[in-house]
Structures are given as C-alpha cells and as structure tokens.
Design a protein around this nucleic acid. Sequence first.
DNA 1: GGTCTAATAT
DNA 2: CATATTAGAC
Length: 307
Amino acid sequence: MREDDSNWFPRWEEELPPPEELMPLSQTLITPDLAMAFDIRDPHHHQIPQPPPPSSNPLPSPSNPTQPNSADFADSAELGSGTAGDEPARTLKRPRLVWTPQLHKRFVDAVAHLGIKNAVPKTIMQLMSVDGLTRENVASHLQKYRLYLKRMQGLSSGAGAGGGAAAAALAASSDPATDHLFASAPVPAHFLHPTARPNSDHFLPFVPVPATLQHHHHHHHQQHMAAAAVAAAHPQLQPQYHRQVGHFGSPPNGSFEHPFLSRQPQALHRMGGAPMQHNPVSGYVEDMESANAAGGRKIQSTMVSIL
DNA sequence: GGTCTAATAT
DNA sequence: CATATTAGAC
C-alpha cells in the first residue's frame, strides 16, 4: 500500500534538479499584452523571439539558484496594470501555449521524478511551478506525452541504453520531426519500464503541504498528492519569485508540515495573461543528449538487438 | 466538489 | 499537427 506511493517524495531534490539547468525557464510564460508592452514583438507576427538566447549556450548560469532573479521581466506584480484595459483574464482566452523544449524538459523532469503513478496534471503543474501554466495545459500535454511513451513502448523492448531518446530516434525512424518536442527531452527509462522503480527512497526534511490543497479522501488507485509541497520547499525550481513570503526559517528537522505556502503567482493570477513562448524551433535543443536525438541521429548505429 | 482521463474540437 | 475544450468517470 505504501510501497510506492509514499516513498517517492523522499529527497528528490538530491537528484531532481540536474545541475545542468535549474531555472532557465524563468520567462516561460509571458502574456501577449506584456510582451507587446515590452516591445518584444508584434502580436501579429506570432514569431516571438527568444529573449535570452545570447549566442549558443542557453545554459543558464545559475551561480545562485537560490536567488531566482529572473533576468527576464515577467514580473507578476505589475502584469495586471501593464497594459490598459485587459485585466479581465477569466473571460479572455489565452493564446495557445507553446511547449518549448525547455518547458517540456521541465515537464519531463517533473513527471520523471514524480513517477508515472503520481504524475498527474495537477501535481505536475505544481512541481513545474511555471506561472501561467494551467492544469489544462499540463493535462493536454500529458495526454500527448503518454501516447508518445506508449508508442515507444511497443517499439523498444530492451533498448534501455541510457535513454528513451535513442529509442525514440529509432522508433520514429522518421526523423525527430515526428517526435518534435519529445525528442528534445530524454525519456527516463523507467517510463517504459513500469517494473522498475528508480525512485530513490530517501527522506525529505519536511514536506509542507499547501492548505488549499489538503483535501483528499476516497480513491483507491490513483495518485496521492503532496509533491507540490516539495516544490514549494525548493524555490530553485521556481521560475518566478514572489516577494511576499512570510520568511520562515524552518529548521530541517522533524517538522511535518507548514501551514502556509506561497508558490503560485497569485499576483499574476489568471489575468488576461496568456502564455507566450519563444520559437519552438529556434532555440531548440539545449542539452547535448537531446541534441543528439533531435539534430543528428547517428546513435542508431550500435544497438541492433531489438526484437 | 474536485480532478483525471479519454475523446473531440479548433 | 499541436493544443484546447468538453464529457464522462472516479
């Protein structure tokens, strides 16, 4: 009963955030109005450029991840009044969310560390901590992602060589163009291997649970929720920072939960905000592994034991 | 009631 | 085709 749904949140932090990049997603979602206001680009030419693609190394230099000084802009605080007469977001429809490789990477990381079992839209969304990202966004993407995984399962039996990405390239056999985004993010082997449980079993100091999310009772086989708390405990993943924090110095000991948490950009709220992204193909791959699968597919030379 | 998933629509 | 939206089930 608790063999796998209670010991997943153990020290995920130790292995979750790959040092590669912790929070390059700061500017993940930008409202069109905001973008316009900032002169980023014309809404008509929906070809939003990438703000931080300096030269070739999108890799962030989070010398200090603890301080998410989102070099970008997207300050939730004043988004509401940035543009004139567009506050009512609830009734406005957001532009389509563009899943950039970075965003997807975040998604995959969240899913990977949550485990397929616990990877449900809400939890994933919370773990991703991307402001503006809605549960629907994640749900939709998750659906597609699942199909992708399933597809690959049928074609890759034991090709566990460090990466579904490789398998993807093989399975796809039709260029990464078929997998687009998915090829850009390494698929954890366990995803295709329900039998294995890479989830480390360690402990997290304490897991604060958002009071607003503390409601769950009946259910037999689904997920439990609590991961969000983990994310909250680690602002490293927070692309956006909030200034209104209670400032708490919680000792890393037997604390079970904290009554308050603030991770969602309430300041940003669902205002006319709309998730806007940069070009999905422009600043593609940022990882070398993904680069392999996405750009040059020359990895399929060795593995042939697929039957 | 909320949320998840599948299906369907844009 | 990628994402959004809806509908049904839990």
